[in-house]
C-alpha cells in the first residue's frame, strides 16, 4: 500500500504507456492503434511533468512579488510537454488522415488485412 502511495504518479504514467503499447502491438483496428499511440504519448507527457514536480511547489510564475524561486516547480519539463503535445497533435492528425485514406483503399481498418506490402 505504501508502495502504491508513493509511486502512484509513476504507475499512472507508465500504466498509460503500457496500455498504449499493448494496444499498438495487439489491437487489429488501425484506429485503436492510433489511440494507443495517443496513450503512449500522454503517458510520457505525464512522466515528464512528474519529473519536474517539487513537493508543495508553486507554478513558476512571478505573478506577484515575494514568491520564492526555490519553491517553484521546474519550468523546463512544462515547456517540453508543451512541445511534445504539439508534436503529438501533428502526428495524430496525420495518422487519422492516413487512416481515412487507407479506408478508402482497402475498405477496412483491420491491419491484418492491410498487407499489400510484404516480403
Amino acid at each position: 500500500m505504501d508502495f502504491l502511495y508513493h509511486n502512484i504518479h509513476f504507475i499512472g504514467a507508465f500504466g498509460l504507456m503500457f496500455i498504449g503499447l499493448y494496444m499498438i502491438a495487439v489491437k487489429k483496428n488501425l484506429i485503436k492503434k492510433i489511440i494507443g499511440l495517443g496513450f503512449v504519448e500522454t503517458g510520457i507527457n505525464l512522466f515528464l511533468i512528474i519529473i519536474g514536480y517539487i513537493k508543495n511547489g508553486t507554478a513558476p510564475i512571478f505573478s506577484k512579488a515575494g514568491l520564492d524561486p526555490a519553491r517553484m516547480v521546474d519550468p523546463v519539463p512544462q515547456a517540453l510537454v508543451l512541445t511534445a503535445i504539439v508534436i503529438n497533435v501533428a502526428i495524430l492528425a496525420l495518422a487519422l488522415g492516413l487512416a481515412i485514406r487507407l479506408y478508402g483503399h482497402y475498405k477496412t481498418l483491420n491491419v491484418e488485412k492491410i498487407r499489400g506490402l510484404k516480403w
Binding site: 512571478f62 515547456a79 508543451l82
Partner: peptide, 19 residues
C-alpha cells in the same frame, strides 16, 4: 531560469520565458 529569468527576459511566466 527561476532565479534570473525575470531579470533577463522581463516575463513573469518562467515557462513562457523558457519556451
Amino acid at each position: 531560469y527561476l532565479n534570473n529569468g525575470v531579470k533577463e527576459n522581463g516575463a513573469s511566466n518562467i515557462v513562457t520565458s523558457v519556451v
